[in-house]
Design a protein around this nucleic acid. Structure first.
Lengths: 242, 242, 242, 242
DNA sequence: CATGAATGAGAGTTCATTCAT
DNA sequence: AATGAATGAACTCTCATTCAT
């Protein structure tokens, strides 16, 4: 009360907290309804503040969306780097697997939001998203890949961006498929084999050692696991006849 | 009297022509501004007709969008099949290359529209997009792949949908990248090497001459493939109970 | 076909028939949906003709409505006169009863349309109904009443328009009430006693003879009928408990 | 903080005032143009507010109409009761005259609005008018009449709803006639004689001093009245099962 | 004369944004 | 700084009317 004249640390952090609350609310509503479908009224309500208050933090709905996008992609990039830094493995393929696992899961969880980002790429839109967000994010892969080449883990003649297309491309496509089947109540595809498969493909194609090494095919152990899973499915099916 | 019951050929084709004009205009405006951003007024103007006229062809904006989507994906599927049928090569990899080339180019040209399709909410929206459009389209690849396996051109233990994810996923990712660099004035990446690279990857990974193939008797790999296929069958069966 | 140049009698009557078909259709739709709620499209469909055809008979929707109203009230007036002309009784009260019976039934059947007529009395409406329709119709009563006075059946000092207000007013109010209860599935009020009561009231008030004569009260016969009806009601109610 | 949760008295009364302004404007426009003919734009302009503001008070045009109706009929009922309560006379006929005078004048003044009420379709429309409004209003007469019977001022065998039809029916018919002649510049009919005439008619017909009254024992008339009342009770009972 | 596809003005309603409190 | 009532431009969709056939 007495701190009116002197903006205390508390006040500043209070503002930051409220800004975060707004962004959280905005993100949730934007994901649920898309940009045009989202209502400022609903965002304000979810943030627990008045409608007008948003406008003292962001100039317009479009600005708010941009801020949400910014935080989303920055967060993604940071997390991806964190995941790799804290990965147990320190070799290229170990880290690649960690990155793939993280990316696949992220896309599955945020598929609506990522679609929304793509949609805003339109030029005539009032919300024209900069491509830098995405560029920064995929740079995580680029750094990993180049370091792998430097350390001799990867073939020197491998072309970065072709590898990148395959990595992100197939993961995202898988993610959409998995998300679709999840939504339909079925869960036939697991995330783990997709990641393992992709890493194996990278090892085979871009690995510095022998070309054939990685193509070992399924081991007895993995076969056993597959049979186990199938057994479960059949059991589930059997129960349907009760 | 006869002209009353039976609309003359001229009349019918005139209606069909107008329908096409509307769909063309709608597609252009939808791509430029998104579904919510598109204005019926502008679509009508671009089609050179009155606003009300659209509503005697399509019940609502959403219906119109759906019709545009339908035509787009159906056309894509038909063209893809045509491309493969008329490909000079008749072997798997030759046809795969034709399909890849067609798909890559298509995505580059229609990237905005494809983004738009993705952005349409599957739920919570008045435009509920059926997944069948996409499913039909990717079935072209599926048929090609299975035929390749039947004819012994591909490894029997290759998993269809993992191959599909890599194929469409990396092509679409490449397409977006290419489209981005094209737009930026640079054209560092050519389409041809991307396609050739992908086909080479497929040949190396899924080609029948891979190392395990020659060994007699049921190998672990072929066993695994058998299990995989059986799993699919059980899944299909399961779906029947939904 | 050959009769193109010479409008035959057939053609003229054909036009009149079509005009009647249009008016019938229009009336039905106007009654069902009101003036603004009625659709020219639906009127045309019900008449079995094209939408544009209506406009070669009537300049606009408002004109059509006016024509419908005209025919309705003219028909009513004609019928009312016909009813009285063909009434068995030739004395004032007999004819009054016939007119009351006809009017009550007419209002019940056409209550929606009559309400519609009242609503169109608005001045700012594009369909401003002339009051002459109604005036012509009530003139039937006026003539009957004046004749009754001339013939000495009615008191010479009775004021025409007060009698008219009571006659039409109470009948219309009763009609609305009866129509309301009919609609609700109940039919507690019969038309006959309402008419008889009103005629009795007229006889007592405006009859030239004695003032008291008509107030005989219910006879034993009518009492018996009332009890009969009540018994029916109780029976109906009893069945509800099964 | 206190001003947050509890809107100040000023604020609340301001809202109520605005609500009344909207209802007044709406009523005027609805009367002038009917429900369909009325334009929200014009209502807003007349109320001196923005178009959108109306929608924060009423969900739709239909809701607004309903609110107008509610207020009109509730006000009428209240006023009618007030008029009778404050009437100098305390006997039945004195109060009847006060009620008649009030009703006649009310109908003359509000004839357009009453026509509008009648014209609103009970079915097939988005504005579904409840009959309760009217029912509540006429209950004022019903209570007066029954009390008159209880106090021996009216004949015991008089049938309530026939009297009600005559009372309201003839007054409304007179009101329309008077309103018509007033509008035409002529003012041949005065309200007072109409009311006096009607009261005289009621006195003659339903007054307790009628000829049958004096006779001892249950007359046929009183028997009939008893049956009539019993019938009403059974009807009421029946309605409970709908 | 008959038709019904085409028209476009105009309707009710929504919602991002403003601003007095 | 925070609020939320008020705003009005702009939306989709309707439908009486027109006119080429």
């Amino acid at each position: 009360m007495a701190s009116k004249a002197v903006p205390s640390e508390t006040q500043r952090s209070k503002l930051q907290r409220k800004e975060r609350v707004i962004l959280d609310a905005a993100r949730a509503i934007f994901v649920d309804h898309g940009f045009d479908g989202a209502r400022m009224h609903e965002i304000a309500r979810r943030a627990g503040i008045g409608e007008g208050t948003i406008y003292s933090y962001y100039e317009s709905k479009a600005e708010l969306m941009l801020a949400v996008l910014q935080r989303f992609w920055d967060g993604l990039t940071l997390e991806a780097e964190g995941v790799m830094a804290s990965a147990q493995a320190t070799d290229f393929f170990g880290r690649l697997e960690a990155l793939a696992r993280y990316h696949l899961n992220t896309v599955i969880v945020n598929v609506d939001f990522i679609n929304l980002t793509f949609a805003l790429r339109r030029d005539n839109s009032e919300v024209s998203v900069s491509r830098d967000h995405l560029r920064h994010y995929v740079a995580v892969f680029d750094r990993l890949f180049l370091r792998g080449q430097d350390r001799g883990e990867l073939r020197a003649d491998a072309v970065l961006w072709r590898a990148r297309d395959i990595f992100y491309g197939s993961l995202e496509y898988s993610a959409r498929s998995i998300e679709m089947t999840m939504e339909a109540g079925r869960s036939t595809r697991e995330q783990t084999p997709v990641v393992e498969d992709l890493v194996a493909l990278f090892r085979a194609h871009y690995g510095a050692h022998s070309k054939d090494e990685a193509i070992d095919g399924p081991t007895a152990a993995s076969l056993s696991a597959q049979i186990e899973r199938l057994t479960d499915k059949v059991d589930t099916l059997s129960k349907r006849f009760d």
